[in-house]
Design a protein around this nucleic acid. Structure first.
Lengths: 119, 119
DNA sequence: TGAACATATGAACAGTTGTTCAAATGAAAG
DNA sequence: CTTTCATTTGAACAACTGTTCATATGTTCA
């Protein structure tokens, strides 16, 4: 029995190999942190609603505020978060700023989530 | 101009059709809530680490606690959340309870998230 | 039954998050 | 330059979240 094996559930057999496998496959701490941060962004129904609007069209901030019955400030705060995680991108046109989806992962992730809860 | 069109960005053209499209595609409030709740579960690096362990093997609570250097209580609390959202399932065998992945969506969702942040 | 082990649960605490409100920035037009 | 519209930003506050600690539940074996 390897020196770093510690008693647990009074069994010893597979612990070492499992720990080895896990350590090989587990992303490093930074990536785990980034991954959690990304999913946190999806973990708010306001932001999901914003993304659903952007599924249909590129829209400006006041369009979003109107469509979702929210203040423009609240929308802007959430758009900032979505932009920081590179889920949306923006483009200024005169006084307005237009937002759109940054890439296709957004649709896939939400589609998979939806599949899961509808099982 | 339709009666429910409100001024916004001093343009009127596309608002009505966009709002119509969005209302058609947007899931209802309950589903949006459930979706957000699901992604909240992924939005914590502890839970992601637990899922990564379960990618490799079915393990008991104290195995997890050991592998992740956490207290058994903290792991148990998180497993409860993972189980409530049907991401993991459990099976009792004597004194131990073994946890494993509930379905394949977990892998897909995490894989897509990882793809996104590694772009 | 009683002791020992594995897991689950509840309360409490610090840390985080989303919205609101007020104020600032940026752009276009007079 | 000043005004007006669109958006962003920062502070403040209530609500929520993850961990810890103590305790309870459940299982096995003597």
């Amino acid at each position: 029995m390897a020196i770093h094996d510690v008693e647990c559930c009074e069994t010893f057999q597979t612990h070492e190999e499992i720990l080895k496998l896990v350590n090989e496959q587990m992303p490093d701490e930074d990536e785990l942190y980034d991954l959690a941060e990304l999913f946190k962004v999806f973990g708010d129904s306001t932001r999901i609603r914003i993304l659903y609007v952007l599924f249909e069209a590129e829209v400006c901030v006041c369009d979003l505020a109107q469509a979702l019955h929210m203040t423009q400030s609240a929308v802007s705060h959430q758009l900032k978060i979505l932009k920081q995680s590179k889920l949306v991108k923006s483009r200024r046109e005169g006084k307005s700023v237009f937002y759109s989806l940054a890439d296709g992962h957004v649709r896939t992730i939400i589609a998979q989530g939806r599949e899961h809860i509808n099982e």
